[in-house]
């Protein structure tokens, strides 16, 4: 059986909120290392990969591999009933029909309990190899969100060019063009404001801004976001969570014109 207790419901609320517009029905794959999810959007352009390590829960117990097929719209409805600060416990039997969610207020004696019916989801799973990326950029997640939103006002695509000069986000649209260039930057007092560019070779790739803006819904999960790029492979956008847990998005590049 599965029993996984989160100190704050907020974490799961934010994760689900960040991915629910991208993917609808997902398997939450539970085993002794934690709870993982991988799902592609309907157009097969973007993929979300979540890992909540067992260390992110206290306690965490999962004796067997259990796949919880959950509709994220349903999960969102139930999670709305949880306060951000509530303790959240997920429970399921070994061959479950439902997943049970318990929300406990730390301040009062209120306990609420919900069951969500599970679905059989036959999901395509992609093998994503460990990749040595040509460029890795760590930057404030709010800055990345701002850049994507600002450029989307002009165009549906953005080119991300990384060179030893820095990283340049540029777009061209009907009304004109725009770009934002960031250079490496260290803020000793506020490390969350750091921009770190690790480059082994110059990279230039073009991506759909609609998807990037969607990924940025995860910004409240982490002060920093990591962008990993290599020529002619999908972009990795990673929001690191506590205890080596993460929320990652992969986005296929655009080609030619």
């Amino acid at each position: 059986m599965l029993e996984a207790r989160l100190e704050q419901a907020n974490l799961l609320k934010k994760v689900v909120d960040a991915i629910k517009d991208l993917v609808q029905d997902c398997n939450f794959d539970c085993n002794d290392s934690g709870i993982a999810l991988q799902a592609m959007d309907n157009s097969h352009v973007a993929l979300v990969s979540m890992m909540l390590k067992s260390e992110s829960f206290s306690p965490f117990r999962c004796d067997r591999n259990i796949a919880l097929g959950i509709n994220l719209t349903s999960l969102t409805k139930v999670l709305r009933a949880a306060q951000n600060e509530d303790i959240l416990t997920l429970k399921a039997e070994d061959a479950p029909d439902v997943v049970n969610l318990v929300f406990e207020s730390a301040e009062s004696d209120r306990i609420s309990e919900y069951d969500i019916k599970l679905m059989d989801i036959d999901q395509e799973h992609l093998g994503i190899p460990e990749t040595e990326y040509a460029a890795t950029i760590s930057m404030p997640s709010a800055e990345f969100q701002r850049i994507c939103r600002d450029l989307m006002a002009l165009s549906e695509s953005v080119s991300i060019e990384c060179s030893k000069e820095g990283v340049k986000f540029a777009c061209q649209g009907d009304i004109g063009s725009g770009s934002v260039t960031l250079r490496s930057h260290t803020n000793v007092d506020k490390p969350e404001m750091n921009v770190e560019i690790d480059l082994t070779e110059p990279v230039s790739l073009t991506f759909s801004l609609k998807y990037l803006v969607g990924f940025c819904k995860a910004s409240s999960l982490s002060g920093q976001v990591k962008l990993c790029l290599s020529n002619e492979v999908p972009l990795l956008v990673e929001y690191a969570l506590a205890n080596n847990s993460y929320l990652r998005f992969y986005l296929a590049p655009k080609i030619g014109d």
């Binding site: 097969h44 992609l126 549906e156 695509s157 492979v233 992969y250 296929a252 080609i255 014109d257």
Partner: peptide, 14 residues
């Protein structure tokens, strides 16, 4: 507008 790639062109289904 550049053409949009598909993720399955890069990663194999398992």
């Amino acid at each position: 507008t550049p053409l949009q790639n598909d993720l399955s062109e890069f990663y194999t289904a398992i």
